Simulated assay, not measured.
Amino acid sequence: MNKFLALSVFTRVAENGGFTAAARKLGMSVSAVTKTITRLEDELGTQLFNRTTRQLSTTDYGQEFYERAVQILSDLEDAELALQRGNVATRGRIRALVPLSFGRVTLVPELPSFLKKYPDISIDLSFGDSNKPIDLVAEGYDIAVRTGNISDSRLITRMLIRSPQVTVASPAYLKAHGIPKTPEDLLDHNCITGNRSGPEWRFADAKGRETIIHVKGNANLNSGDALREAAVAGLGIIRGTWWLVRKDLEQGHVQSILTDYAVEGAPISVLYPANRHLPAKVRVFLDFLVSITKMG
């Protein structure tokens, strides 16, 4: 029995939840996949999957075997690449899921330097702002970047940055309407809100005393990028994460205000499967994410 093929077929079936989907991914017939799993179970002397007419899932023994199989296949891939190139970190495809604004503003502009350093790595990026639980293995992602406090025992969470919430407006808007000195001054300004921030903006003074201002404005925009563009265009004052407007702050397109009253924003973290060996190509990408999210 070809053990490597058997392990590859087994992990594909486990990750895709069925023989048909696994066969499609492997380019094999469904009958060949089924026979391979049957032979593997016979050789191991145990049942790896619970089979029903509607669903296929791993047994307890199957889940334990899956975790070991993934480790073995990943180690084998690393060993082969190391022999071929002498540097396993410089080859392969990385599939990542990232928030739209974070990807557009912070990640994508820095990708040329990363890909220049690792020319044999390719990046497959998907963009999505939902923080709903995701099965990275089943979806085929190596890592995901998420905003907010994430709790999932299946995933390892590494915080990239916890940046302050910033309040900004364009120099033209501030010249025309004045610069707010206190949070209460916002009541006399056009404040552009978003679905995530809402109209209740929270501030804190140097002693930690909090103030919540119910701001008003003539627009509510369901997009971080749209909020940023509105501020740059001089429409009004916006509230957002530092990384959303970091480039505009550097280039002077917007100006930060009420900095003495800033509060901490939601963390941005990178997540990857807890039960999977982390390939070196992903490790260098993680280091890259850490480097581009440093404040300063």
Rank of each mutant, 00 (worst) to 15 (best):
T90L: 01
T11E: 08
T34F: 00
Q71H: 15
Y66T: 15
L73P: 11
T90M: 05
A96T: 10
V105K: 02
D75A: 11
T106E: 02
E110G: 00
F114L: 05
T11V: 12
S74L: 09
Y66S: 05
Q84F: 02
N16H: 12
I37K: 10
A89T: 11
Q84E: 13
N50Y: 07
L97N: 15
M28W: 06
L73M: 12
R51N: 05
V13W: 04
V108K: 07
V30Q: 01
L115M: 10
S74M: 14
R93Q: 14
K117I: 02
G27K: 03
F49Y: 13
F49H: 12
Q63H: 11
R91W: 12
L76S: 12
S74D: 14
S57K: 15
A23W: 02
Q63Y: 14
F114A: 01
V70F: 03
L73N: 12
R93I: 10
L100C: 06
A82S: 12
R54H: 10
E15W: 15
N50D: 14
V33K: 02
M28P: 05
E77T: 14
E64Y: 05
R68K: 08
N87C: 04
V70Q: 12
Q47M: 14
V13A: 07
T53M: 05
Q55C: 03
S31I: 14
N50E: 13
A23K: 01
L26K: 04
I72A: 04
L111N: 07
I37T: 12
A79S: 15
R104W: 07
E80S: 05
I37E: 06
R95N: 15
T59A: 06
T106P: 01
D78A: 15
V33C: 13
T38A: 04
L26F: 07
T46Y: 03
